[in-house]
Amino acid sequence: MRLRHPDGSTVHLSYCTNVHAAEDLPGIHGQLSGVAARVRRLLGVERLGLGLWLSRHAAAALTARPEELAALRERLDALGLEVVTLNGFPYRGFQDEVVKHRVYTPDWADAERLRHTLGLAGILASLLPDDVAEGTISTLPLAWRTGWTREKAAAVTAHLDAAAEGLRALAARTGKVIRLGLEPEPGCVVETTSQARALLGDVDHDHLGLCLDACHMAVGFEEPGAAAATGLPIVKLQASCALVAPPGAQRALAAFDEPRFLHQTRSATGYADDLGEALAGGLPSDESWRVHFHVPLHDTPPPPLTTSAPFLRDLLGALLGRERPLTRHVEVETYTWNVLPGAPSDIAHGIAAELHWMRAQLAALGLKET
C-alpha cells in the first residue's frame, strides 16, 4: 500500500513474506497467489506491498534465469502486488523446524553474504515498479556476538565497502538506487542503534544505513527517539511488537517457549539469549521481561502478558509524525504466526488485521492512502 505523507512524499507499507515457508520459485508463486492475494482482497486495496523474502536457492534461480525474474514481476503485477523492499536477513530455511542461531549465518565476515546480498539487489532493481526509483534491503547486524574477532571485523569492513561499491555500480547501470539497512538485534555484534552509529558513521550513507526493528528496540530497552538521534539514514522500519511480562508473571511466558526461533529475553538489569534460559532462572522475576517474540500488532496475548505496541506507536511518531519522514518503507514483520499459541490455520486474516491496524496508526499521523 502507498500512503502520502503530509510533506507530499510516498510512504510504502508492506508485510514481510518470511512468514511463509517458500524456499523455491514454485513456492513463492504459490504464496503470492494464495495468502498474499487473499490479504489484498481482505483489505480491499488496489495494490498490496510485499517485503519479499528470497532464500539463497530462489535468489540464485532468479539471477541465473532472467525469464523467471520477468515472470515473477508479471505475476506480481497481475495479482495487484508490488515489491519495493526485500528482507535479506534469513539466508535459507527460515521456517524450518529449528532455526535459532542458524539465521545469523553466513555472517558479514563471509564473502557469501556479500554475494547473496548483491544478488538480491540486482533482483530488486528489476522488480521495482516503473514509478519507483529506490528499493531497500534489510540484513543482519554483522554477526552473532560470540566468536567475534579482529580478523572477522576486518573482513566485515571490506565486505561492507564492497557492498556499497556494488550498489553504486548497480545504480549507475539501472537508474535504481538500492539501499542496504543493517538491523540491530539483541545478542548480535550490533545490538542497538548507538552501536550502529559507531559502526556506520563513516560509510557510504547513500547506500548503507539502518533497518529498525521495533521489537528489537523494545527488547533492548531503547528509547523511541534514539534512532532519530543517530543521524544515520533509516532505510526501513520493521513494524513489530515484542512480548512483555510484568514482574512476577513470567511463568505465563512458558507457552511461547518454542523450538524454532531464538527468543532473546531482557529485563532492566539482565539478559538471556533464549526464553527457556530466562524461565530456568536466568533473569530476575521481580522485573518486567521483554521477549523477542514477534506478536501480532493488533492483538494482545492473554493477561497478564502484554506487548510493546505503545513503543511501536511512539516510534512511528518519532519517524513519521514530523515535518518530513525519516523513513519511507514500513514493513510489518510478524514471522511467528506459524508458532504462535492459538494461531489460526489461515493466517491471511491475521496479516490483513495487522495491516489494517498499521494503516490506522499512519492515518493518525496525517498520512493518507493513495
Score class of each variant (00 low, 15 high):
residue 222 E to A: 04
residue 295 V to R: 11
residue 321 G to L: 03
residue 143 A to I: 04
residue 212 L to E: 06
residue 205 H to Y: 08
residue 190 V to H: 10
residue 323 E to C: 04
residue 123 I to E: 13
residue 361 Q to R: 12
residue 335 Y to Q: 11
residue 173 R to W: 02
residue 234 I to N: 11
residue 367 L to I: 02
residue 228 A to E: 09
residue 234 I to Y: 00
residue 118 L to G: 14
residue 154 A to G: 14
residue 273 D to I: 03
residue 89 F to W: 09
residue 72 L to V: 07
residue 185 E to P: 04
residue 32 L to N: 11
residue 288 S to Q: 02
residue 47 R to K: 00
residue 286 D to H: 08
residue 151 E to H: 03
residue 313 R to W: 07
residue 281 G to I: 00
residue 226 A to D: 15
residue 54 L to C: 12
residue 151 E to Y: 01
residue 34 G to D: 14
residue 44 G to Q: 13
residue 340 L to P: 08
residue 81 L to E: 03
residue 264 Q to R: 09
residue 64 A to P: 11
residue 194 S to M: 01
residue 294 H to K: 02
residue 127 L to E: 14
residue 95 Q to N: 12
residue 305 L to D: 14
residue 221 F to L: 05
residue 131 D to W: 06
residue 96 D to C: 10
residue 359 R to S: 15
residue 21 A to E: 11
residue 40 R to D: 11
residue 112 E to C: 04
residue 339 V to Y: 05
residue 185 E to D: 09
residue 15 Y to C: 03
residue 298 H to Q: 10
residue 294 H to L: 07
residue 335 Y to T: 04
residue 202 D to C: 06
residue 315 L to Q: 10
residue 90 P to R: 09
residue 248 G to H: 08
residue 350 G to M: 09
residue 49 G to N: 05
residue 213 D to I: 05
residue 97 E to W: 02
residue 295 V to Y: 15
residue 142 L to F: 06
residue 58 A to G: 12
residue 329 H to K: 00
residue 103 V to G: 11
residue 247 P to L: 01
residue 274 D to K: 01
residue 296 P to H: 11
residue 332 V to Y: 03
residue 306 T to D: 13
residue 246 P to R: 06
residue 246 P to G: 13
residue 302 P to Y: 06
residue 208 L to Y: 03
residue 255 A to D: 14
residue 359 R to Y: 07
residue 84 V to L: 02
residue 327 T to Q: 09
residue 77 D to V: 00
residue 318 A to L: 01
residue 304 P to V: 00
residue 331 E to C: 12
residue 233 P to H: 10
residue 113 R to S: 13
residue 49 G to I: 01
residue 45 V to H: 11
residue 60 A to W: 08
residue 80 G to C: 00
residue 49 G to E: 09
residue 325 P to D: 03
residue 312 L to T: 00
residue 42 L to W: 03
residue 50 L to F: 02
residue 86 L to F: 12
residue 170 L to C: 10
residue 135 G to Y: 05
residue 81 L to G: 11
residue 126 S to T: 10
residue 154 A to Y: 08
residue 133 A to C: 03
residue 110 D to G: 08
residue 128 L to G: 14
residue 58 A to Y: 09
residue 355 L to I: 05
residue 34 G to V: 05
residue 235 V to E: 15
residue 201 G to C: 00
residue 192 T to V: 00
residue 358 M to L: 15
residue 212 L to Q: 01
residue 46 E to Q: 02
residue 217 M to Y: 01
residue 367 L to G: 12
residue 130 D to L: 02
residue 265 T to V: 07
residue 10 T to N: 07
residue 236 K to I: 02
residue 56 R to S: 13
residue 226 A to S: 15
residue 85 T to Y: 04
residue 187 G to P: 07
residue 250 Q to H: 11
residue 146 T to D: 15
residue 128 L to A: 10
residue 336 T to K: 11
residue 25 L to T: 10
residue 218 A to G: 08
residue 52 L to V: 06
residue 229 A to M: 06
residue 106 P to S: 12
residue 270 G to S: 04
residue 359 R to V: 07
residue 191 E to Q: 06
residue 265 T to M: 06
residue 51 G to A: 09
residue 106 P to Q: 06
